[in-house]
Computed example of a mutant assay.
Amino acid sequence: MLKKLLPIVLALIGTGAGVGAGLFLMPANGDVPDVADNAVVKSDGLHTAADSHKSDPHGGEGNEYVKLNNQFVIPIMGAKRVEALVVAALSLEVSGGASQTVYAREPKLRDVFLQVMFDHANIGGFEGSFTSGDRMEILRSALLDAARSVLGSDVQDVLITEIARQDA
């Protein structure tokens, strides 16, 4: 009988301890961040997403981040065949309200971005230690120039959010 009762008692004690800890650790003044307010927690405290733009290094209060819909696949050619594939995902930091323009011009953006990445691959930019700071800065700078040729000065930065190389 004790063997059947012990797991139930332990479960009730564990549940009670969890509820008690939750009540004990709950903020007293009700400063619980609301997910609907897009709160962002930083190491120096609680800031809302609107506050995070004020510390933007580009000085662009109200900038938006636009993730391009699909990844970019860049073949790395050898002498006679594809030796590897590089897959990259990009986002753009644009002035507030420019996200619709980005989506409207996305086909042209994808075209110029692919051309930049093909050129980067052809000069050996994706060989060896392709994620080193210098190589990534060269690629980012070329992508930023290409983005500005399509969207103008609304583009603040190009962010490489994912990049991977798969050897064949």
Rank of each mutant, 00 (worst) to 15 (best):
Q166M: 11
V116F: 03
D51Y: 01
F130W: 07
P75M: 02
D111A: 13
P107Q: 06
S132D: 15
A79T: 12
L151C: 10
P27G: 12
K54I: 09
F113V: 09
F113D: 03
M136V: 06
S91T: 09
A39W: 02
V82Y: 07
R148N: 08
E106F: 09
A147R: 00
R165K: 15
H120V: 02
N122V: 02
L139M: 09
K80R: 14
F72I: 08
H47I: 02
D145V: 08
M77Y: 13
R81V: 11
D34Y: 05
N38P: 03
L159I: 10
P7F: 02
D44F: 05
S95V: 08
K108C: 04
L5G: 05
I160A: 06
P57E: 05
K54M: 11
L114F: 11
V116N: 07
L46M: 10
N122P: 00
A84W: 00
V73Q: 14
L46Y: 10
S132E: 14
M26C: 10
M26S: 14
A147Y: 01
G30S: 04
G18V: 10
V102T: 07
D119L: 06
E127H: 07
D111N: 13
V102A: 08
G125A: 03
L6N: 01
S99D: 11
D31N: 15
G152R: 07
A50G: 09
Q100W: 10
P75K: 02
E61A: 12
A98F: 09
A49H: 04
I76F: 01
A36C: 03
V87N: 10
A17L: 14
A164C: 00
A21S: 14
A168I: 15
N38Y: 07
L25P: 02
A79I: 03
G128I: 05
D134K: 12
E93C: 02
F72R: 06
L151H: 03
L159Y: 11
A88K: 03
G152V: 05
S52E: 12
I163Y: 00
V87P: 00
V102S: 08
V40R: 03
M117N: 04
H47V: 07
D154I: 03
K80I: 09
K67R: 13
A17N: 05
A121M: 04
L10T: 10
H120Q: 15
T15Q: 05
L6A: 08
L5R: 07
A168S: 13
L151I: 08
N29P: 00
L114M: 14
G133M: 11
I160V: 14
G96H: 10
R140I: 00
D145L: 11
T48V: 01
E61S: 11
P57F: 07
E61M: 04
V86M: 06
